[in-house]
């Protein structure tokens, strides 16, 4: 009986997303920051190509290089994901929304479906733009989209962005608000995860963190760039990220179901 109204719920959530200013600026930032800082890094690499050792040349991953800016671009994606869910709580809209759609499962997954789909579209646009611009700048060191595993990595970049956004939505639902969620997620993905992944002592388990594992899908040369090897492949890594995200989203759903609005 409620299944029939699910398109209505999707429609409603789409209206909610497109009618607030934060959607435009977070998603635009995700794209601009990723493409811009990736291009800048590619320009640096291109200029210093001659200084590379043969070993470095061998493990250089031009595809991955054109996605480096995602480290910063993903922060805007996190903010997008958090705000989509969190502003329901901070504005008090949640009570109005749930009075209109009292079935928590329809409300929550309707919202997540629409927001994740939008994040995926923007994520794919970002990764394709970032890739092609990066390859143009890299010149001699570039690869084509038809190269082995390259298309997988570029599509993977979009999937990664969407998954980061979805993960953030789950966290915001667990914390029932925006501020705390942003204060936890940004430092984690910007600093903590990178430190843990960069230090040999902690790398063994840090490779299973959602962003570290998920980012492997953008790698074409195994063990390339950062020189780390993992116990899983690109899809295995993305699978780990999906499991993390599924756990957080489920947690968010249970909080919404059990707690008073």
């Amino acid at each position: 009986m409620t299944v029939s109204s699910f398109p209505g719920i999707l429609n409603s959530e789409w209206t909610k997303i497109r009618t607030v200013a934060s959607t435009t600026w977070t998603l635009a930032s995700a794209l601009v920051v990723t493409v811009g800082s990736s291009a800048a890094l590619c320009a640096v690499v291109s200029a210093t190509l001659d200084d590379m050792t043969p070993q470095e040349r061998l493990t250089f991953d031009p595809t991955m290089a054109s996605f480096v800016g995602m480290t910063f671009g993903q922060l805007a994606m996190i903010v997008f994901g958090v705000l989509v869910v969190g502003t329901e709580y901070s504005s008090g809209m949640i009570r109005t929304s749930l009075a209109a759609v009292p079935r928590r499962v329809s409300f929550f997954f309707g919202k997540l479906t629409v927001a994740t789909a939008l994040a995926l579209v923007v994520g794919l646009a970002t990764s394709f733009l970032s890739f092609f611009l990066g390859q143009v700048i890299l010149g001699d060191a570039s690869v084509g989209i038809g190269g082995d595993n390259v298309l997988r990595a570029v599509i993977g970049g979009g999937l990664y962005m969407a998954m980061i956004a979805l993960f953030s939505m789950g966290v915001a639902a667990i914390l029932r608000g925006s501020v705390l969620a942003i204060c936890m997620l940004i430092p984690f993905f910007l600093v903590i995860s990178n430190i843990l992944g960069g230090v040999p002592a902690t790398r063994k388990w840090a490779q299973y963190l959602p962003d570290q594992a998920g980012a492997k899908i953008m790698q074409v040369v195994p063990g390339g760039m950062d020189g780390s090897t993992t116990t899983y492949g690109p899809w295995g890594g993305f699978g780990i990220m999906v499991l993390w995200t599924a756990a957080v989203v489920l947690g968010g759903y249970l909080v919404l179901k059990k707690r008073d609005a």
Binding site: S12, T15, K16, T19, V20, S91, A100
Partner: peptide, 18 residues
């Protein structure tokens, strides 16, 4: 209990659509 960043019309529109 509405989203302040949305217009009155759009606040009602998303409720109507749901």
């Amino acid at each position: 209990s509405m989203h302040g960043g949305r217009t009155a019309y759009n606040n009602l529109l998303c409720l109507a659509q749901s």
